[in-house]
């Protein structure tokens, strides 16, 4: 738990904002996929800390800045959007586990919808750091053209494709449909790893594609959190018992099995928020 000074807090487009915080020299640095819980205000309403992913880490001389990309959706984010440069924010983190990268990672596809791009941008940067020749494809979209944001930034890190539900920009349809479309037209490499963040039904559809074509993938999940520390058990997510990854980098300290060991819950704040796309029991998770 530390105080982070606000370096920048700007509106990018519509309800999307970017916050930049100075990481104190003694603080741990986050990995892409990890998150912070931020106290939004000093009163009892909003009450709980709000979780936000690390978006990017920027080194400026000696200083390291943590960028958070956020969308104003309610009281907490509304308060955050009014924070001024120079003010201090109380945050806990980095929490949870980051995305996993194969050393020889070559082809990566990022699938985002709206603010889901926040944790994925760092994935592209981390992959390029490991392999400068890696090919990055970004599938980014929203309901309508007006809501598609971060276009320039997406183009900077790879080959960007856009989609909208109404077809007002790019492909008409959703992320998984665009992915299928590109695969059918052989616009994507034969083998790739996907990293995705967005609404749970989008992630479920991507899981179906991943299973059907045997493509590896990872997702960052969201759930309402109480503590962010694995103590309150608010953020339970059902996993598929026989798909749980136990290899290196995939430790899961907080699994809770049912007595017959057929059902299992994992805590997103502790074991996640990143999961192998096949681990999640999507039928149970998506309402």
């Amino acid at each position: 738990m530390m105080e982070y000074q606000v370096i920048e807090n700007i509106n990018i487009s519509l309800s999307y904002h970017k916050l930049s915080l100075e990481i104190p020299p003694t603080a741990k640095l986050p990995l892409p996929g990890q998150f912070y819980t931020v106290r939004c205000g000093e009163t009892k309403d909003p009450l709980l800390r709000r979780p936000f992913s690390m978006h990017r880490l920027i080194k400026r001389g000696e200083a390291v800045h943590l960028e958070i990309l956020y969308r104003v959706v309610g009281k907490g984010t509304e308060w955050l959007s009014r924070c001024k440069v120079g003010e201090k924010l109380n945050a806990i983190g980095p929490l949870g586990n980051g995305f996993i990268f194969q050393e020889d990672v070559a082809n990566v596809i990022l699938v985002a919808r709206g603010i889901g791009i926040a944790p994925l941008y760092g994935v592209a940067e981390a992959v390029l750091m490991r392999n400068q020749g890696a090919r990055i494809f970004i599938l980014m979209g929203a309901r309508t053209k007006e809501r598609v944001f971060y276009e320039e930034e997406c183009r900077k890190i790879g080959r960007a494709f856009f989609y909208t539900d109404d077809g007002s920009k790019g492909f008409q349809g959703n992320g998984p449909q665009l992915l299928m479309h590109l695969m059918e037209r052989k616009k994507l490499p034969q083998r790739f790893c996907m990293y995705a963040c967005g609404p749970s039904h989008m992630l479920r559809d991507l899981a179906d594609i991943s299973e059907k074509f045997d493509l590896p993938g990872q997702v960052a999940l969201e759930e309402h959190m109480g503590c962010g520390l694995g103590a309150c058990l608010s953020c339970a997510c059902p996993l598929r018992a026989s798909y749980i990854r136990r290899d290196k980098h995939w430790e899961k300290p907080s699994l809770q099995w049912s007595e017959d060991r057929r059902q299992v819950y994992s805590l997103i704040c502790k074991d996640g928020p990143v999961y192998d796309i096949q681990e999640v029991n999507w039928n149970e998770w998506v309402v």
Partner: peptide
Amino acid sequence: PRIGSHPHRSTEVPSGLLANI
């Protein structure tokens, strides 16, 4: 051991928390 309630176990309300663990 108990696996607990279905997901979406907590939600914030004004100055409070509703939790079903």
